[in-house]
Design a protein around this nucleic acid. Sequence first.
DNA 1: CAGTGGTCTAGACCACTGG
DNA 2: CAGTGGTCTAGACCACTGA
Lengths: 239, 239
Amino acid sequence: MARARTGPEPQYLKVKNHLREGIARGHWVAGDLLPSEAALSLEFGLSRMTVNRALRELHQEGLVQRVQGVGSFVAQLERISATLTVRDVHEEIQQRGHRHEARVHRLTSVAASPAQAALLDVAPGQTLFHSLIVHMENGVVIQCEERLVNPQCAPDYLAQDFTRTTPTHYLLQVAPLSEARWSIESTLPSAQEARLLHIERSEPCLVLRRTTYSRGLAVTWVKLTHPGSRYFLQGSFQA
Amino acid sequence: MARARTGPEPQYLKVKNHLREGIARGHWVAGDLLPSEAALSLEFGLSRMTVNRALRELHQEGLVQRVQGVGSFVAQLERISATLTVRDVHEEIQQRGHRHEARVHRLTSVAASPAQAALLDVAPGQTLFHSLIVHMENGVVIQCEERLVNPQCAPDYLAQDFTRTTPTHYLLQVAPLSEARWSIESTLPSAQEARLLHIERSEPCLVLRRTTYSRGLAVTWVKLTHPGSRYFLQGSFQA
DNA sequence: CAGTGGTCTAGACCACTGG
DNA sequence: CAGTGGTCTAGACCACTGA
């Protein structure tokens, strides 16, 4: 997807880069007023629409603050944002050129406890699917995946072979993703998790919890537990 | 900044929402070909530019895959992305309506060890600034901030009063942010960190490491250590 | 070749801001 | 009021794809 144009650099990108570099070099600092669309149109000899696109995209990227009737300003970068991408384990491991294996420790239906019911926003006692799967990279356990699934959204969940596909992959096919809420924390593993991950109960774990919604319904809740010594998240932020 | 228009919904948003809902409802599923710009122009009675904007923005948001000469497709959402925002501690605590306090335990210059030199991409032995600050929310320690700073980028770093401003805030003023690389992991604290955070050495911590660049130079490296029991990251993903 | 998306123009009308 | 950004049009030319 990276831009692979053969032709010359688009004009709107020239404007974007001009402003981006000016900001990066400190020519304009946070809070400064940038040239207006009209001024940039003249300076670059472009139509206003083209300049507008450059400024609009910088705004979408959070680098520029725009106020109708006033002007465009360099944004206060008090927050540092980055895109956190949570990939499907299978895909992530394969991309590293490694071998992925999964062991299904549990795949059953349960009557929702009050706590479980709250996670998926259903009534206590309602039937839910519950799975517990351990994922291995080249034979080493790196993730323990405990999951609750709303049967309404994926009635055939229990019939899947999760040594051949992953719950994430299956559920995304069955129920198009519309929203997700997640959290990341650091905790000690439960006795069961320690056993499944082959670690001591004293080894810290990176835990990712996520609830996924489709068409306004909570489809699934998942807790992904990783040994802290074998897993971390990373990313970068540009501009 | 949230859209607060008084007038009617813009046309390009109508098209965006139409497509977004179709995807969320499963009318089109991952890999499906969406109507062409020309088709949508006719359907909605809009110019191609307006429809183009709708599709382009959906592409930028990762929901749609576009191939020149072929068409626009519903993207494979194998990855779940979210914007991870790392805020300035001070701002984060104030936003919760709480009181922020900082204690400066170290603020000195050091000769870079080989390991430290590598973090900021300078020569070993070069002078670096080293700070160790503890941040408290309503009197409770929630973050231990260890930082290395390149003196070239912030020569007056040692003269700042970090009980009144934060290093993040100061450095963003002095050296405009152009790039950052970060990682998140779960580890046990060092003896020093445990002491500063008032926790046992057996309590897991959420650790955020980040290197920040300005004008191509590494400005600062920071390690933010949080007690796992008192801190976690969270976020959401839409569309 | 016809159909797609990628870009660009030279206008236009509007809503909003500040003096 | 003049100046700003927000949106929209009806064309245009181009690069790319697949038949």
